[in-house]
């Protein structure tokens, strides 16, 4: 679709704002609606839009498939790792209050930030990887 100037220009204008909005939904989830899952799908939608307009090969140079596969696992590990960190700091699994002994509320903030980031990373990369795999398949 790269030969269509209107689509190219509009997509170029939209994609940075889509990504910025995804980051806003990710890190503002404590205050407004949203969180890791929502941010992940919006970010993935931006990447998919980029791949649709500028071609999958170009998109794979931005989001390398191998890096995506590593990040799929990294997101889950970040979430579970935050839980394990709670145990190591003397609390229960996924007890974020234990992450900061002086101020449990601060620990909760830190824990929620990290697990939401883990969810966001896994969702973004799973969605984008799935799209890359499907787009690579040709008619048999």
């Amino acid at each position: 679709m790269s030969d269509q100037p209107i689509l190219r220009v509009i997509a170029k204008m939209f994609i940075p704002f889509l990504m910025l909005f995804a980051l806003y939904v990710q890190f503002h989830g404590d205050f407004g609606p949203g969180g890791g899952f929502q941010a992940g799908v919006i970010f993935a939608a931006a990447l998919v839009l980029y791949a649709l307009i500028f071609g999958t090969e170009q998109a794979k140079r931005v989001a390398h498939p191998q890096a995506l596969q590593l990040l799929v696992a990294f997101g889950v590990l970040l979430y579970a790792g935050t839980g394990v960190a709670g145990i190591l700091m003397g609390g229960n699994f996924l007890d974020y209050g234990a992450l900061d002994h002086h101020d449990p509320v601060h620990g909760q903030h830190l824990g929620i930030l990290l697990v939401e980031l883990g969810v966001g990373i896994t969702v973004t990369t799973v969605m984008t990887s799935t799209f890359f795999i499907f787009s690579a398949r040709k008619k048999p």
Partner: peptide, 22 residues
């Protein structure tokens, strides 16, 4: 008081129900 996050949905999803979200 416990979580200190204005969005209660986020408190429930990420902290109270952290196992489910994991």
């Amino acid at each position: 008081d416990e979580i200190g996050v204005p969005n209660i949905v986020t408190s429930v999803l990420a902290s109270y129900r952290g196992y489910d979200t994991l």
